[in-house]
Simulated assay, not measured.
Amino acid sequence: MSDVKITIIDREGEAHVIDAPTDMNMNLMEVIRSYELASEGTIGICGGMAMCASCQCYMLNYQHMLPEMSYEEEDMLDQAFHVEDNSRLSCQIPITDELEGLEIRIAPTTE
């Protein structure tokens, strides 16, 4: 089993250094949910299909190591609230070895 360390800052501002498995075909949104770092029903509402922006996160480093943004992700972020230049949908970021040391902050909810 291979893990990468990722720092996730939750919506309350608390930083969590977590181990994310690279061998389970997970994405960043699924890792956030599995560690319960966002309230139930506030992240991944569409199930990871890039059809909502509930899993929006701000990439605080390593933007160059992330996969290129798809048209669907870019389109969804164009319609989302609280979008910044470093916004990404966490459901579109697969957990790979290249994410070692990634730091993100979960975007606020639209409520």
Score class of each variant (00 low, 15 high):
I6H: 00
I6F: 01
T7W: 00
T7K: 06
T7I: 04
T7F: 04
I8W: 04
I8N: 04
I9D: 04
I9C: 06
I9M: 09
I9E: 12
I9L: 04
D10L: 05
D10V: 02
D10I: 00
R11M: 10
E12C: 10
E12T: 12
G13P: 12
G13K: 07
G13E: 12
E14N: 14
A15Q: 12
A15W: 02
H16S: 00
H16W: 02
H16E: 03
V17D: 15
V17Q: 13
I18L: 10
D19N: 15
D19Q: 15
D19S: 15
D19T: 14
A20S: 01
A20W: 10
P21K: 05
P21D: 06
P21M: 00
T22F: 11
D23L: 04
D23I: 07
M24A: 14
M24S: 13
N25H: 13
N25Q: 14
M26E: 12
M26A: 14
M26F: 13
N27E: 11
N27I: 08
N27C: 02
L28D: 13
M29G: 03
M29V: 04
E30S: 03
E30H: 05
E30V: 04
E30C: 05
I32T: 14
S34M: 05
S34L: 02
Y35K: 14
Y35I: 10
E36S: 15
E36M: 12
L37M: 05
L37C: 03
A38K: 11
A38V: 14
E40Y: 14
E40N: 10
E40P: 12
T42V: 07
T42G: 09
T42C: 08
I43V: 11
I43H: 06
I43P: 02
G44Y: 02
G44I: 07
I45Y: 09
I45M: 10
I45C: 08
I45F: 11
C46K: 01
C46Q: 09
C46I: 02
G47A: 02
G48P: 06
G48E: 00
G48D: 02
G48L: 03
M49A: 13
M49E: 11
M51A: 13
M51Y: 14
C52V: 09
C52P: 11
C52G: 15
C52W: 15
A53Q: 09
S54G: 12
S54L: 10
C55S: 03
C55Y: 05
C55T: 10
C55K: 02
C55M: 04
Q56Y: 13
Q56C: 11
